[in-house]
Design a binder for these strands. Structure first.
Lengths: 236, 236
DNA sequence: TTCAGAAAGTGAACACTGTTCACTCTTGTA
DNA sequence: TACAAGAGTGAACAGTGTTCACTTTCTGAA
């Protein structure tokens, strides 16, 4: 039982925190290089010169440790796309950069990003109620990063650039899905970006830009005057 | 050493094939319900009343077995989106249905789909040359499903609906990324589709349609006459 | 300063996992 | 009928995450 007040932080507390930090940083180092499969408790224990069971005095389980790595990653990601979205540039450039930064950051730390979306809770059909409530979600780093996207959409609508009939939250989710998909494909299919029939040099960065372009285009205000947020020529 | 000719198929061959089939179908049953983590060799052996080591007489490794499940899944997926894209309906409806079918099929068999994109070969930075050559790729079910998307894009361009300045392969990849992303989010985040601030009923199906709409909109021929395949108002 | 109690750390063990290998048993063929 | 190839097995190996009784170390109060 220790108080939350830092003024009452004892040497023992600091020592404990330092060991905890050493575990995390070793885990971070191994995880970034080899991912979840390369990170075993025994190996981690070896690296920091403790016994495997010692780690359980600091983390309840391996999953709990990895959750902390993922959370830290999403905090960095949040900071990055927040920076992109608030830079001093024309709106459409910022919007594109926001998507591109998201994908780029994910690809830079493939194991972190992949791990953050690797657990399937879908298995049990009875998940009733709310394992994913709005209020609970928006407080997480992941949720806040999503919030940046929502703000971007509403800003685009206020600037009369994006289709005003779109629900900003839904549009942001669509945008998120699009960015997430490219990140995943780039991570899980090496050289996805240069998958073309002809010999044609194409960097990942270039393709990310292209994709961001298309994503944003889908949100643009229709110029044919209908502006109902639906595809032309459909009647259902 | 057995010949490929089915006419020379011996009873032993048929017996072997039957056992092999029983392994696959048991694996399929368990995998669909509990995924890769629920599928252990020992459990599989129990289910089919063989010893664990017997399974290695039919499959080189657990991964090899799972690869077969994934390949079979993608064959089903290919058939489905191929059906969607060639149905007798207006082009834009078919295009939308194609994307929607892809996502829907993925979500129906979450473990299969997730597993198909779960291995990270990205780890080693030196993957030079071609682990993912075009010719090699298009012969796989995954590759053929991708081919359907490419055809769809070119058809849209021929019909003067899609932006003709877009590279069809790149546009198809972007479309794939968008569909893949939504599928992944729906699989890995339960109730992603109803993640909204207000109380507002929204089925996964509805959101899939919405997303497909936006994806397709990004490919539409710009109506402002520029038609250069880039966002308006950018100069780089 | 002493001493109880709470932490920190440990080693062995448990219940798993995928995989291998020497072995037996069955089967088809010459 | 004999023999070889293949099918099937049980035990073992090297891992894994995790637990628990145990010892050691530290700290705060008497």
């Amino acid at each position: 039982m220790q108080t939350d007040s830092p003024s009452e932080e004892t040497p023992a507390d600091r020592r404990r925190l330092r060991v905890r930090e050493s575990i995390i940083s070793a885990a971070e180092r191994v995880f970034a290089k080899e991912g979840e499969s390369g990170l075993s408790i025994r190996r981690l224990a070896d690296e920091i010169d403790y016994s495997p069971s010692a780690i359980y005095k600091y983390f309840g389980s391996k999953d709990e440790l990895i959750d902390e790595l993922k959370e830290a990653f999403f905090e960095r990601l949040l900071a990055k796309i927040d920076g992109s979205s608030s830079a001093d540039r024309p709106f459409l450039q910022r919007a594109k950069a926001c998507v591109a930064t998201y994908v780029d950051t994910a690809v830079t730390r493939p194991f972190h990003y992949a791990a953050a979306f690797s657990s399937i809770k879908h298995a049990l059909p009875e998940n009733g109620g709310g394992p994913l409530s709005w209020d609970g979600f928006v407080t997480t780093s992941k949720g806040q990063a999503f919030g940046v996207l929502i703000s971007m959409v509403t800003e685009g609508q206020e600037l009369d650039i994006f289709d005003p009939s779109l629900d900003p939250v839904m549009a942001a989710k669509s945008l998120w899905a699009g960015s997430h998909g490219l990140a995943q494909l780039l991570i899980h299919m090496p050289h996805f970006h240069q998958l073309v029939p002809e010999e044609q040099p194409m960097t990942a960065k270039d393709f990310i830009e292209f994709h961001a372009d298309l994503q944003i285009r889908g949100l643009l205000k229709p110029t044919d005057g209908s502006g109902n947020g639906r595809l032309p020529g459909q009647n259902s």
